[in-house]
Design a protein around this nucleic acid. Sequence first.
DNA 1: CATGAATGAGGATTCATTCAT
DNA 2: AATGAATGAATCCTCATTCAT
Lengths: 212, 212, 212, 212
Amino acid sequence: MSPLRPRPKQETTEKPATSPRPARGKGGKNRREDILRAAGTLMAAKGYDATSMRDISAAVGMLPGSVYYHFPSKEALFVELHNDVVQTMTARVLAALEGVDDPWERLRLSARAHLEGLIQNDNLVAIVSPQFIGGEKEVAQVVTDHRRTYEQIFRDIFEALNLPEGADPTILRLGLFGSLNWVPVWYEGDGRRSPAEISDQFVATLKSAYAA
Amino acid sequence: MSPLRPRPKQETTEKPATSPRPARGKGGKNRREDILRAAGTLMAAKGYDATSMRDISAAVGMLPGSVYYHFPSKEALFVELHNDVVQTMTARVLAALEGVDDPWERLRLSARAHLEGLIQNDNLVAIVSPQFIGGEKEVAQVVTDHRRTYEQIFRDIFEALNLPEGADPTILRLGLFGSLNWVPVWYEGDGRRSPAEISDQFVATLKSAYAA
Amino acid sequence: MSPLRPRPKQETTEKPATSPRPARGKGGKNRREDILRAAGTLMAAKGYDATSMRDISAAVGMLPGSVYYHFPSKEALFVELHNDVVQTMTARVLAALEGVDDPWERLRLSARAHLEGLIQNDNLVAIVSPQFIGGEKEVAQVVTDHRRTYEQIFRDIFEALNLPEGADPTILRLGLFGSLNWVPVWYEGDGRRSPAEISDQFVATLKSAYAA
Amino acid sequence: MSPLRPRPKQETTEKPATSPRPARGKGGKNRREDILRAAGTLMAAKGYDATSMRDISAAVGMLPGSVYYHFPSKEALFVELHNDVVQTMTARVLAALEGVDDPWERLRLSARAHLEGLIQNDNLVAIVSPQFIGGEKEVAQVVTDHRRTYEQIFRDIFEALNLPEGADPTILRLGLFGSLNWVPVWYEGDGRRSPAEISDQFVATLKSAYAA
DNA sequence: CATGAATGAGGATTCATTCAT
DNA sequence: AATGAATGAATCCTCATTCAT
């Protein structure tokens, strides 16, 4: 763990309180998902490196070794988590687009869905973030692939905007993505501005600048 | 400068021949800066957690323990590095603004200076990255303070734009920052689009949407 | 048989259709032997310590826990495996001696049978290997007992040679054993020299030196 | 650790007794050699896999992590140990041959030196042993190379014997090696037969069989 | 200024084993 | 006869850090 983000040493007192010792064959059938959820929360909060398997296992009430029954490695756990997140985000965005035809409206709604997903599930913040994993090996590729697939949705939407000459759709799309993905860095859930208002403002800027 | 430990940056000329052993044959006059530079490069590439003091010391040809002569801790090293980076960026942006009065031109040039600094010194990428503010400790606060100071320049520039009703300068500024800071995530130095072109496009969008 | 758990080796024909579920589609009738075989191969290749119950269970298509239905512990599994191996070797050597009377010919044939068994069943290599007797526990004793029983055959054969004064039968027997057991260390199944040729050479040396 | 060779749980009572806590900068300058010696003893007794870095560090009065200051990995430690052992053995054998010209006498003396080295330094037993390391990767190759170099001495000696037709020097050499290397498996330091007597007997057999 | 040697805590991972189902 | 899920202890190793020299 990084000393930059220390962790309370013995938080054993704040256990789920359901049962003092969960015995062998716990009720909930899918501990896998518990683990994924816990890992998501922790990694979003502290980063991949700063989140230890100990942390994850403790969060889900297991011993560290037990996590390895479900996932062969921390990396594999992360990859699956990342995949899940992208899956969820994809579904969310596609749902928002359902039945909407106007190109600029489609952009507005997808940006909104993206940002709301980012803010609500704090899972997602770090996930979509770059150079995320220390070892820049195969995992980085997998993660990049996941992201690319997701971004295809936005590529298509930008395509349909029929932007005027001089407006590079790729740069504008990546610029919008940057704006949105950066929001969690400064956003404070104080309610002054909702994610929806924020993303609407970003898209409004684009529309105001480039709509026919 | 660093709140933890002031550093004699320019006045090394005062006592050039005092040290009987001229250090391990390294050209650079003081190792402190070597360490900072190495730490910057490594942390930018791999992140704070994934960069060990061993890595840093090895990169500068020292033993791990020796780094502690120069910096009391990894944390302090990082804080000073971050401060340096912000200092450098500030100087770069202010230099670019010198003698320029037109508000939109000022925005264009400062955005350009920011992005070019980001891309050139790979130092800077990770520093400004969200992952570094996850924690809730003093360091996080210091880092946030550094950034806030730097961003004040941009706050002022946006103020001067006199944006129309309905255009929230804060959101637009943070949106631009997001766009710019996200560039290193996808930018590949393949020369197809220069950082300058990219930042110009972002600013052009804002201008096109909101300029009087 | 194993002192820990008797095993119905040959009488499996008695109740061929009792089990309603014919096991996971495997051909071999009982999984116990599959496990033993797999354990033998793996332990021969990697050693006792380096062979995990996971390895063994995977090799036979089971989950690790399932092995414990058949064997109470890794130790017990090994003891039984070792016993089996010695049993097999004993049978092989005795078969080779059948009907042979000449003492030197008996030595030649038994050495040949021993080495061929060693080379063919790679099972056997590691089993007879010194590394396995390092420990000071009961298992080590059991294993040593197994081996001693087997070696009795050779003790008898050497006795019958009526070696001349000055030729210590014990040392010569152990020397021959060493020569033979060491062969797997350097033998490469390239066919240049067959195990039979090798063992014949060893025995020929003894005969040439000590035969009346 | 293998359950075959369990280890007393808390033998902290049997510390060297020199000083209750060795403080920071211990007196003896080369802890490296201490580590190598300890590792040698332990690995010879229990095998590579069964000897943990904990064991080694405890034997030399260090914390496990401290060993890594001296050796980058368990494997590297083993490789160096193995190299040292071969070096020592080589020196021992060459010293024994000094000034001796008669070919059979050279064989007798080198075999004696080999076996005495094997028995005295219990280090050496396991080292010269085969399939020693679990992971049969590069290390296995290095170890094999070490051994091959050492065995060249014996190859030369056998060459000089001018064995008659039909006596394969390679097989005989490997047979002798097997006989000698197997001795530690059965030898008990009860003094009935000295290593020298044993090795002399092995060589005498060869000479009796093949000397002109 | 720096090294050499260590510490102590924690990192990911693997192990033999258990047991309810 | 075997699975699925977990345990607890041990594995190798890395980390930031210390300090006598």
